[in-house]
Nucleic acid binder design. Structure first.
Length: 499
RNA sequence: AGCGGGGUAGGGUAGCCUGGAGUGCCCGCCGGGCUCAUAACCCGGAAAUCGGUGGUUCAAAUCCACCCCCCGCUACCA
């Protein structure tokens, strides 16, 4: 029977600046799972992209003397470049200015409108004349002052369209009950509390205020206001591959969970589509206990960290050193130690140690081994690692997979090989005695490295290209890998020490 | 304010739902081993009143109550 599919998404990011550590975090987490499921031969579709509409883009473009389209083109390239440097293996990069996306949004809006779930009403907000825009009360400074001009705003009423979200309250609650995986446990109570007072939501702005957006198909004087536009990327991004529908794992920061957990499924129920399986929220990063902010000057640039250490180091740090789902503190000291002591010390050193030993002691580069290698029984537990990964992946147990990879796959897997070498001391033996021991260790190393592909894609890729053979987890068999490699490199430096 | 999340050795974490000796992991530190390897690797050790107080229980990091500290959310903000 064919493996099931996994449709994995990140939010589409608002491209008003280069990717920051938060969007990198979400994207790297999603990429880890996308790579993992591909390794396990699931039909996998990994979608990310940018949210290009809205007033801020419009204003930013005006300020730069560009058209909004020029601006978003630049920003989209910047994001794609960043993801490339971080090794993000998305299948599709969706931009909401794509014609096909705009078409789909209008179709869905029409569908929902015809169903009677959209109605016109009055939106009351705080308007700043200088900014020419509306603010929510929360955005304003105390005393109802505009945050930019520090001037009083006025309460103003405009016509706008509303989506009948409250209508779907009971259906949503039933869905939560029947699909206990849908909401992240940590935020479930919060969502349920808010559901008690569920209101309809405004989904439009008049064109004269925001022109950079998708026009409502039933009223061209209004544009779709953000979320209705943005959330539908998860559908338009599939293009003609609707067989992947619905999303299986939707990753995001905890700040936008509410929209994904409530508005998004309500929209889908209204439009008549199956609902996503899991919404997964991660926490935010602080720096040395303080909130990251430009004014404090403590913003962590993911690309800078990846460049100074390696893309894999950034990924390893974010995936294994932070408590997933809770806020975590970004520590440069821990980051550096993770690189030098763990990645380089345990793993990188082992790689080089092994291949050099091989050439030194066994003294031959060709592999004479035919067929399957009888692997030393102390490595037999490696097979249980693979079994456990398959089990956790099948149940979408994302919370357990990350610590399992950190402790069991990386630490125990790599540690077992280092300990094996220390115990057997092949460097003291005659070549004929050392060779079988090194075979065992190399086989185990390749096995563990295959398991580590989702966690450390760049390093493992380097390993397998050096050996001239790359297995994937679903076909992995202990004892059957070393005989397939083309060569054993003379040396193998996976990480550089950073002082 | 309301609602929610967190507070576990010097640092970072897992465990908490489904109570059972402070049990695990990483870094750092101390001692030993090894010297093949990017001063890396292996073994051993010290170090925690599991935020505080009280309660339930034969038994609590784990369940309950209250308190203290940190953080987030509060929707028409993308």
């Amino acid at each position: 029977m064919a493996k099931p599919k996994r449709f994995i998404t990140t939010p589409i990011y608002y491209p008003n600046s280069r990717p920051h550590i938060g969007s990198a975090y979400t994207t790297i987490v999603a990429d880890f799972f996308a790579r993992l499921y591909r390794e396990l031969a699931y039909g996998t579709y990994f979608l990310t992209g940018v949210d290009e509409h809205g007033e801020k883009i419009q204003k930013a473009a005006e300020a730069k003397g560009e058209t909004p389209q020029q601006l978003v083109d630049e920003m989209a390239s910047s994001f794609k470049d960043a993801w490339k440097r971080l090794g993000i293996s998305y299948n599709r990069f969706i931009r909401t200015t794509e014609k096909s996306h705009e078409k789909l949004v209008r179709e869905i809006l029409m569908k929902v409108y015809e169903k009677g779930d959209i109605y016109k009403d009055v939106y009351e907000g705080y308007y700043c004349v200088s900014c020419e825009r509306y603010y929510t009360e929360k955005e304003l400074l105390p005393g109802l002052l505009c945050p930019y001009h520090h001037k009083p705003v006025e309460k103003k009423r405009i016509d706008a369209y509303f989506f009948r979200m409250a209508k779907y309250r009971d259906e949503l609650l039933a869905y939560y009950r029947e699909n206990p995986q849908f909401l992240p446990p940590k935020y479930k109570e919060e969502i349920l509390n808010k559901m008690k007072d569920l209101k309809d939501i405004c989904i439009s702005r008049p064109v004269n205020q925001v022109s950079w957006g998708i026009r409502l198909p039933f009223d061209e004087e209004h544009v779709a206001y953000v979320w209705f536009d943005a959330l539908l990327n998860y559908m338009s991004g599939l293009d003609d591959k609707m067989q992947f529908w619905p999303p299986d794992l939707q990753f995001m920061g905890k700040d936008i969970l509410w929209f994904h957990a409530v508005l998004w499924p309500a929209m889908l129920i209204s439009a008549g589509f199956a609902l996503p399986k899991r919404e997964i929220a991660h926490g935010f990063l602080t720096v040395d206990g303080k909130k990251m902010s430009k004014s404090l000057g403590n913003v962590v640039d993911p690309l800078e960290m990846a460049e100074k250490y390696s893309a894999d180091t950034l990924r390893y740090y974010l995936l294994t050193k932070l408590p997933f789902g809770d806020d975590g503190d970004f520590s440069r000291a821990v980051f550096k130690e993770a690189h030098n002591s763990e990645l380089l010390g345990h793993y990188g050193n082992l790689a080089n140690r092994l291949v050099k030993l091989w050439h030194r002691v066994a003294g031959k580069a060709e592999i004479e081994q035919e067929g399957k290698l009888a692997v030393d029984e102390c490595f037999a537990k490696l097979e249980s690692l693979k079994a456990k990964i398959e089990e956790l992946a099948a149940s979408n147990d994302v919370e357990s997979l990350l610590p399992f990879y950190a402790n069991d796959v990386f630490m125990d897997g790599v540690g077992a090989i280092n300990a094996y070498l220390n115990e057997k001391e092949p460097w003291r033996l005659e070549p004929s005695e050392a060779e079988p021991i090194l075979r065992q260790a190399l086989e185990a190393f390749l096995y563990v490295s295959t398991l580590l592909k989702p966690l450390l894609p760049a390093s493992t890729s380097k390993i397998f290209s050096s050996f001239g053979y790359e297995p994937c987890v679903s076909e992995l068999e202990l004892g059957a890998t070393l005989s397939k490699v083309k060569t054993i490199p003379k040396e193998l430096f996976l990480f550089k020490r950073v002082e």
